[in-house]
Amino acid sequence: MKSLDPRVNRLPEIDIENSVSRKDPLDQLGTYEVFVQPKEGKPFQHEGALHASDREMAFVLAKESFTRRFQCISLFVVRTTNVFVSDTTEDSESVYDRIKGDVDKGGNQQSYEIFNLYKRGKQHVHIGSVSASSPELAMAAAKNKLPPSKTVYNIWTVKTSDIRFTQPDEMDLWNTLPDKKFRDASDYKGGDKLKEFLERSK
């Protein structure tokens, strides 16, 4: 195909007309949720979702899909199916009011991470971990041990063991992120050149 794009001219022959038949099953990959900690002392926050073959690849791909700029010191991923989701409330009703804070006498207590949504349309924020014998009881434990100071519209809970955390020796992955000025508007100040041009063309 004759294109203005030299890369296209190097592609193997590509037919124009033929269309794509829907593949069955879809070669669609699994879905993972990505959480990022921007700075020391700040909580992890949900950043979005991506598709990958497994947790390890999700972690590798998440680093560039979600932390190409701004700040990041740590990131973790979890499969979407491993996130347990509460009801979603609105207006002035907190979803915690719908949860009975009954005591968890269950056996096999496990650690769960808790995430709260403080405003519809914003991101879930990590508020801490609890131990419980089920996801529902983890939310009940959160109600008692991590009482929110403002209205919460939705809760996510995840078994800690389902999460692929950043390892201590991987923390240097983001060392050079602040130096990547070329991905930031501040690197493209045209003011002087413009002033010089305007003076010249007066």
Binding site: H51, A52, V60, L61, K63, E64, S65
Partner: peptide
């Protein structure tokens, strides 16, 4: 040269970085 031509979006992004 692979940017925009990758096998899947997430890998297209990582390979470009």
């Amino acid at each position: 040269e692979w940017t925009g031509f990758g096998p899947m979006l997430e890998e297209d992004i990582a390979f470009s970085s």
